[in-house]
Amino acid sequence: MSVDWITVLAQIGNFLVLVWLLKRFLYKPILNGIDARESEIAARMGEAEIAQKQASVAEAAFLEQKRALLVDNSEQVERFRQQTEKEKDTLLAVTRESLEREKQEWQAHLNSERDRFISELQLASAETLYQLVRRALRDLADEDLEERIGLHVIGKLKSMKPELVSAAGNAEQAVATTHKPLPDRTQEKIRTALAGLAPDLELGFTTDPGQAPGLILRVGSVQVAWTVDSYTDELTGMLSERLASGGTGWMQNHG
């Protein structure tokens, strides 16, 4: 057993070479790799921490936004509710107005119907009254209604002589309008009576079926009339009163 110094030197050289080789191919790559990985992990952890902070900030912002949104939402709901209320009120007002208008229209229609009815009633009443009076007069007094009307008008003309003369002025013609043609005898009587009042006037006769039974005398701008309109108006008034009282009575009886 001895030490071979050449081998010792060779082994020292070998050992130094091995140190260099392992430093070059083992320690440096491994340690640098570990360092790189550590720094990468540290960087990633840093990034994760930053990301976590950002996430926290984002979460807080989101929660704030959500809260604001909820508040805004409730405000919006309230606004919509008020708007809807207003809309409802407007619609109700429009509907009420429309109903009122329809009611008024209906009322106007009723009034017009009533007026038309009354008008028709008046005409019918006048006609009926005229026929009844005529028949009654003929049956009871053996007189003609037209003639009596004519005489009545002439009677009136006598009392109105000054007004009639002044109104006639320069007029040369008078026109007597009747519902139906007057008998010639009656026409002659009226013509004679008028000649007594205004000799220059020439009297003409005409008929108007739309006119109420009676006689209307026109001289210039003056008009003297006697028709059954006043009687039928009175009759209509009486009928209306009776209808109104009857209606009320009916309501009282059945209400």
Partner: peptide, 11 residues
């Protein structure tokens, strides 16, 4: 080998 151990010890 004592030479190796001596070399390592010398190192």
């Amino acid at each position: 080998s004592l030479s190796t151990t001596a070399a390592l010890a010398l190192s």
